[in-house]
Design a protein around this nucleic acid. Structure first.
Length: 640
DNA sequence: ACGGCTGATACT
DNA sequence: TAGTATCAG
């Protein structure tokens, strides 16, 4: 068997796993709405910095999306198409956006989701769960069926490939849960889905946040489906429906900047399955499209593993081959905490920093934030970061020829705000010398406007846990030199080998290899230390008699409640005969049912297409062009 | 050189 | 390893 290093080439292990991907719904918006309950139900977005064109949107609530408001719009644009929109600003600390409230909220969620199985923090608002064991246990404990365990939330699941009668979807789903045609894998997924439904309810109860989830046999499929039915719903991918689900998926994002969520709304019109495959949104996806004529995952199937490896390298080739078949052996890492911390800021346009003191000032701010976060990581999680890295971006004035990038620099990390500040500045100097070029050293004094810094960031990585035993911390933070005594904001002092060898500081190790500390650290095993919320807030939203996540999206009920939407099957855009995906829920729209704000976001030609297909029977959308330039692939490579 | 800030991963 | 590049949200 192959052991490869790239975007995953592990074969799926023989045992069927139960993997869930859980994704918070417009997370930052939810965090703000919890803080300000009067915002619930209103069109809301979170912006950072509002002085320039109203600030940049980084999260958009579902009510606002109905108006066509998109992430990465400016606040002013959003106001134009949605005058009622409530724009909440990201907290600002030390002159920069401070995302800590969202990090902490994410930790609350993770501490709940990690109760039932191995849990991996995938981002600030996403986690993977490996529920295999829990599902197997549940199955053995309930050999006579799962009837007792099915709650309302579970019945709201979407099961890919399940034929719904359109009259009572929940009965169909219930039947699927109770079933089954005896497929052990399906039963495991059913158990997983019950657990996830339960967990999602717990998250809601304890944090007031809703989330969506995908439940499948591997990470890729779970991730792919967690966003299919948002907000506050979950989707199950039975093994038997993988092929038909995957084949029609477009390889690459279409329609430019259009939000995935909007296209998901439209999938019901287009009868097309639309999802963005991870890793394929960028250059690889473009290459597949233009060079191989691959537009859908199904198009990939015709290529042998070897031919894909030839073009894209061993690892990527194997990865592609597997992806097309729904194979992904990636394990869920048991990691609840981030692997690095960073703090950065951009200085666009004329805000660019042109003097050393201004750079130092901002570096100090960034380091202060970073140091604070490192300190709380140490206190809460008993972890130590070992490497400090400085990134900068810059452009040169009066110098058109050399488009060099500002080099990143790193060094051993010494704890304490002022130390981090000093070290960062030294790293900056080291980078700047390279950037300017050693020759120009003389000119620097005369002409200070040779360079301008457009971005600065400092980050801490190589974070390892220290044993939480009695004196273990002090053991690792022993103090040898007054210079390295803990600063007053730090309860600990940290000395590492490289630093202790060089009291004079950084100059000796900038540009040279740091000495690796040989201390042994324990594996990370501990969970998150979440500071419990000051008080359990009373849920202010009206509740139904049965707990329902959807109930929290009051004004959204009409649009998102699955029971309100007639689900039918079929609708073959791809004309694949037997291979028609059965997962699509489609119905005939009337033109006045289309949200104009959403429609307007589509490119003109697509708008026309949508309008033409309205009020007409299905199958009006043009067939995708498939595989037109496959031969291209067999042409000799230019380099050979 | 306004899509900002953050994080992960893989290659060399 | 340190440093770079790419990707995602």
């Amino acid at each position: 068997h192959l052991i490869l290093m790239m975007p995953v080439a592990k074969p799926e292990s023989s045992e069927a796993r139960v993997i869930a991907h859980i994704d918070m719904d417009c997370f930052y918006v939810q965090v703000e709405q919890r803080k300000q309950p009067n915002l619930r139900g209103q069109p809301t977005a979170v912006v950072q910095y509002n002085s320039w064109k109203g600030g940049g949107l980084i999260a958009v609530g579902y009510e606002a999306r109905k108006f066509g408001v998109k992430r990465s719009m400016r606040g002013d644009e959003a106001k134009k198409i949605c005058p009622e929109i409530q724009l909440v600003q990201v907290p600002v600390a030390r002159g920069k956006a401070d995302l800590n409230v969202y990090r902490n909220a994410g930790s609350e969620v993770i501490s709940i989701l990690s109760r039932k199985g191995r849990c991996e923090r995938a981002s600030i608002d996403e986690v993977y769960l490996d529920l295999t064991e829990a599902a197997e246990t549940m199955l053995t404990e309930h050999p006579n069926g799962l009837l007792d365990l099915i709650n309302e939330e579970a019945l709201r699941s979407h099961v890919l490939g399940l034929h719904l009668d359109g009259l009572n979807d929940r009965d169909c789903v219930r039947e699927w849960f109770l079933m089954n045609n005896g497929d052990h894998r399906d039963k495991l997924l059913a158990c997983g889905a019950l657990i996830v439904a339960e967990l999602r309810l717990e998250v809601l109860k304890e944090t007031e946040f809703t989330c969506s989830a995908g439940i499948a046999h591997n990470k890729m499929l779970a991730k792919l489906t967690s966003g299919m039915h948002k907000p506050a719903q979950q989707t199950i991918v039975p093994f038997s429906s993988v092929k038909n689900f995957l084949e029609p998926l477009p390889i690459k994002k279409m329609y430019g900047d259009l939000r995935l969520d909007m296209l998901l709304l439209f999938k019901n019109i287009f009868q097309l399955q639309w999802l963005l495959l991870k890793q394929l949104g960028g250059k690889l996806g473009t290459s597949l499209e233009t060079e191989l004529g691959v537009q859908t995952v199904g198009d990939l199937l015709q290529f042998s593993e070897e031919s894909l490896q030839e073009r894209y390298g061993r690892n990527t080739g194997t990865w592609l081959w597997n992806v097309a078949r729904g194979i992904s052996g990636e394990e869920v890492e048991g990691r609840l905490l981030p692997k690095s911390h960073g703090s950065g800021k951009t200085f666009p346009g004329r805000q660019a920093l042109k003097t050393l003191p201004s750079v130092q000032k901002w570096l100090n701010e960034l380091c202060e934030e970073l140091s604070e976060r490192l300190q709380s990581d140490l206190e809460q999680n008993k972890r130590i970061a070992h490497t400090l890295t400085l990134h900068a971006s810059a452009y040169k004035l009066n110098d058109s020829e050399s488009l060099k990038k500002f080099p990143s620099k790193s060094c051993p990390l010494r704890y304490g705000t002022t130390k981090i500040q000093e070290d960062s500045l030294s790293l900056f100097h080291a980078g700047l010398r390279e950037y300017i070029g050693i020759n120009n050293v003389k000119a620097k004094g005369i002409n200070r406007h040779e360079w301008a810094i457009t971005g600065l960031s400092v980050s801490a990585s190589k974070i390892v846990a220290v044993p939480s035993g009695t004196n273990s911390i002090t053991k690792y933070f022993h103090n040898e030199d007054q210079n390295y005594a803990s600063s007053k904001e730090s309860d600990y002092a940290f000395t590492n080998d490289a630093a202790s060898l060089s009291p004079s500081g950084i100059q000796s190790w900038v540009g040279s290899k740091p000495t690796q500390s040989k201390m042994e650290f324990v594996e990370e095993g501990s969970g998150i230390n979440v500071k419990s919320r000051k008080q359990k807030r009373k849920l202010d939203t009206q509740k139904r008699s049965t707990p329902s996540i959807l109930g929290y999206f009051r004004s959204n009920d009409e649009a998102s409640s699955s029971s309100d939407i007639p689900d039918t099957t079929d609708g073959c855009r791809y004309n694949l005969g037997e291979d028609v995906p059965r997962i699509s829920n489609s119905w005939n729209y009337k033109s006045d049912e289309i949200d104009p704000g959403v429609l307007n976001e589509l490119p003109p030609e697509i708008q026309a297409e949508v309008l033409a297909s309205l009020d007409q029977p299905q199958n009006q959308v043009k067939t995708a062009k498939r595989g037109s330039s496959i031969v291209h692939y067999f042409l000799p490579t230019k380099n050979s």
